[in-house]
Design a protein around this nucleic acid. Structure first.
Length: 504
RNA sequence: CGGGGCGUAGCUCAGCUUGGCUAGAGCGCAUGGUUCGGGACCAUGAGGUCGGAGGUUCAAGUCCUCUCGCCCCGACCA
């Protein structure tokens, strides 16, 4: 049988991405325009992401709550920038009832028109700050450190599985503080939580820093972001943390009395990451054989493929496989895995041959594969293969069964590190300093990647570059070098380089 | 939302130009058998309102109109 290969990255990167999502069983398009079905394997990754992040949020003092899916239309209008930013992509609910048509079908009951239409939340600042009004009376009520796990809807014109869908899953943190300084510290703290998560869990290196004025979130005073480079050298905004100033407190009249008895507006932040992270995970690590998932987020850490011909061999191999599986499950990785279990699967399906199973588990991104057959058993050993080191050459043969579990534990750690290092190296190799706009225009097309260039800090120049080159300022990294220079477009002074790239 | 491409079996597609009999292939699926260390093979079988609606015609997968969806490129965006 001809192997069903996935499209190579070199041939067609977009198709490769779709093939991975499809063949690894992560998600599929639904019959609802722009909305995806997240399949069990994809959702399992999301659950790992959720649990790791949720712990990080709890560890930084946050609690979860839940606010409504529907928001009165008028709320959006209360904050001008937000209304402007989201008006074009809101789903609107105008009626609350259907009625059956005699003979079949249903139609909207015109009698059920809502007095005030509701919108489906594109983000929840408005409904949450409207609620905070009654929660915040005194400086003693602050800070409010609340997160919610939710779905949101943005009526996108052009969607791509995980990267941009009309409905997506995310978390949104919404905090209220007594002082500007505390709110700004919070925004910074949470973008650092995102950095930590991206790098330590997703093995995805990120740049961290503020967005330019033109790229910030509607309603924010400023937006901090984590920004990653995908394997096609395009940038992906992977998470944002916003300092919202007193914009929402003023729009929703959220005030408190300070210790001196004076009334003040509260200070706000909001921060979020979404199922888009799964798209980032795919495009950071996966290869032409399929998905690669960093061990700390892998739904299945190791799979054992038993190999046998006869019934006698089968019994012996499966017994050894199950015993090995138990010893892997007992590995002391619980803390490293956020107290999630080490998951091992013995693939004892009869209808597939070993070669087929090897390919299938590679497609699904399981970090370590164990091959165990009669020849190994005779030596009391097994064969180990690490997903990020593909090909027969990279297999470790003759690993004693007594030491296999420990070796697998080492491999999981090594793979987590190796994926991060490989991605970091890739980003570094595709990041260039450019010093003139001509050079910029050439390099953004070929070779592409992240371009570090001087910019005069104005919105006009930002927009002009975006319009002329399709590249945007992705981030003004916190850790950039101070370097006096001149804007590559206007020649006006600049105090350091910013990161430009084409982006998702 | 603008430009281009495509909708036929679970998947990938042929058939449409030039309308004509019970609409095809490969993969997948089911059953039985042989296999099993990198995507096995044989046999038998199930599976299709040809995206949807309307129209032209003796006759429509094929021609016309409308519509829905998907993919690619742009504008917008997490």
């Amino acid at each position: 049988m001809a192997a069903e290969k996935i499209t190579s990255r070199a041939k067609d990167y977009s198709q490769w991405y779709l093939d991975i999502v499809n063949r690894a069983g992560l998600a599929e398009n639904s019959d609802v325009r722009g909305c995806m079905v997240i399949k069990p394997h994809g959702y399992a990754i999301w659950e790992k992401i959720q649990r790791a992040l949720d712990r990080l949020f709890k560890d930084t003092g946050h609690v979860n709550a839940y606010f409504p899916l529907f928001i009165p239309k008028s709320f959006l209008a209360r904050e001008e920038q937000m209304a402007e930013g989201f008006a074009k992509e809101c789903a609107v609910i105008t009626h609350h009832r259907l009625k059956a048509i005699p003979g079949g079908g249903v139609e909207v009951d015109p009698e059920s028109k809502l007095e005030e239409p509701l919108i489906v939340r594109p983000t929840s600042e408005t409904i949450i700050w409207n609620t905070y009004r009654s929660w915040v009376q005194s400086w003693r009520d602050l800070p409010l450190l609340i997160n919610q796990w939710a779905n949101v809807v943005r009526w996108e014109m052009r969607t791509r599985l995980f990267l941009r869908t009309a409905e997506f899953l995310w978390q949104e943190g919404h905090t209220a503080h007594a002082t500007q300084q505390e709110a700004e510290e919070e925004a910074r703290r949470m973008v650092e939580v995102y950095r930590h998560f991206a790098e330590e869990w997703m093995a995805m290196p990120v740049l961290v820093g503020p967005k330019s004025e033109g790229q910030k979130f509607p309603g924010a005073v400023y937006t901090l972001c984590i920004e990653a480079m995908m394997q096609d050298k395009k940038a992906l905004q992977a998470g944002t943390s916003h300092f919202l100033g007193q914009n929402f407190a003023k729009a929703f009249d959220v005030t408190f009395q300070n210790p001196e008895g004076k009334r003040e507006y509260a200070w706000a932040t909001s921060w979020g990451v979404s199922t888009r992270l799964i798209g980032g995970l795919i495009m950071t690590h996966s290869d032409d054989q399929g998905l690669i998932v960093p061990p700390r987020l892998a739904p299945v850490h190791a799979v054992i493929v038993p190999i046998y011909k006869t019934e006698t061999e089968r019994a012996a191999v499966l017994e050894a496989a199950n015993k090995l599986a138990e010893s892997i499950r007992d590995l002391p990785l619980r803390e490293w895995l956020n107290y999630e279990p080490v998951t091992v699967r013995v693939d004892d399906r009869e209808q597939y041959q070993p070669g087929f199973k090897f390919n299938e588990w590679e497609l699904k991104g399981v970090p370590v594969r164990v091959e165990l057959g009669p020849k190994d058993l005779a030596k009391g050993a097994c064969v180990l293969a690490r997903r990020d080191l593909p090909g027969k050459e990279a297999k470790e043969a003759g690993v004693p069964l007594t030491k296999a579990a420990v070796r697998i534990g080492e491999m999981l750690h090594a793979m987590q590190t190796a994926l991060f290092e490989r991605a970091r190296k890739f980003r570094e190799e595709n990041t260039y300093e450019v010093n003139s706009y001509d050079e910029f225009k050439k390099k953004i097309e070929e070779p592409g990647g992240f371009l570090l260039a001087h910019w005069d800090g104005t919105r006009e120049t930002d927009e002009r570059i975006a319009a002329e080159t399709k590249a945007t300022i992705r981030c003004i990294p916190f850790d950039r070098q101070k370097e006096a220079g001149k804007c590559m477009v206007t020649g006006r002074p600049s105090e350091g380089r910013v990161v430009f790239a084409k982006a998702y």
